[in-house]
């Protein structure tokens, strides 16, 4: 598999609040080739920073559009979230190893912007007729991103901080105790969720994976900067989805 580097155009950039923006870009080469679990590196045309890794929540190969949710944490994400209709940005992708949509029932657990990379996976599993349950957690109601799109695929359990007693990890565990038996679990966006899923793996025997993050300079296996896990695999080549143990290090 090869990647493309193209100059994309911003279609829209909408701020959900001060911390999260939804960026829709026209990036036809990348949109044509993306697979669930993969990511892109993006850099505004005028930026003096390295590209930043982002995992699209959606892409349309026909329209050539790609959607990214951006959590603003520093200068790179700040610059990306300040883009406006018509601005240009460099996009490199698709990158990384796709999630294999293997047989069996799947549970997807995500928090915050970490919810969004799960959507393409959920859609692919749904398309293949696999049983999918989704557990979403966020700081505020409007950050339960794409909850409706998930609901079209399978049962969704949501939790917003400070509302209701039971976090999604507790609800997931309760479902397990009540007899729910997923064969595979994928977590994204929370160390706490990762730790919980890993802790109960031995009891309920599911295969568990986690979508990891690491500072990336290139995203294409050239710099060797994104080594993770006990064997120091390159996250940009052998990830970003890795066995759950690697999310506990």
């Amino acid at each position: 598999m090869s990647w493309a580097r193209e100059m994309a155009t911003v279609y829209s950039c909408v701020h959900l609040d001060d911390t999260v923006a939804r960026l829709e870009i026209e990036s036809p080469d990348v949109a044509r080739a993306m697979n669930p679990g993969q990511f892109v590196m993006v850099r505004p045309e005028q930026s003096s920073l390295l590209p930043r890794a982002m995992a699209p929540s959606e892409w349309d190969p026909v329209k050539g559009r790609v959607i990214l949710y951006i959590r603003i944490v520093g200068p790179g994400t700040q610059a990306l979230s300040a883009l406006q209709h018509g601005d240009r940005l460099m996009v490199i992708g698709p990158l990384g190893t796709p999630v294999r949509p293997e047989e069996g029932a799947w549970a997807l657990l995500g928090r915050g912007v970490g919810i969004t990379p799960l959507l393409p996976v959920a859609k692919e599993l749904g398309r293949r007729g696999h049983d999918v349950r989704i557990y979403l957690s966020a700081r505020a109601q409007h950050l339960l991103l794409e909850a409706d799109a998930f609901a079209a695929i399978g049962p969704v359990t949501c939790h917003v901080d400070g509302q209701g007693a039971s976090s999604v990890s507790l609800q997931f565990i309760k479902d397990l105790q009540d007899g729910y038996r997923p064969r595979r679990v994928l977590v994204c966006g929370s160390r706490r969720l990762t730790a919980q899923v890993a802790a109960w793996q031995g009891v309920y025997g599911y295969e568990a994976q986690v979508f990891l993050e690491e500072k990336m300079a290139c995203g294409i296996g050239w710099c060797k900067g994104c080594a993770t896990g006990p064997e120091w695999h390159l996250l940009c080549v052998d990830g970003p989805t890795r066995p759950i143990e690697e999310g506990l290090l």
Binding site: S48, L49, L50, E214, K215, M216, A217, C223, K224, G225, C226, A227, T228, W232
Partner: peptide
Amino acid sequence: QKGNPPPRLAETPSGLINSI
């Protein structure tokens, strides 16, 4: 040999520090 332990990269305003 395996190289240096992560984290291996830090970005600066005009470049990159690596300890790969």
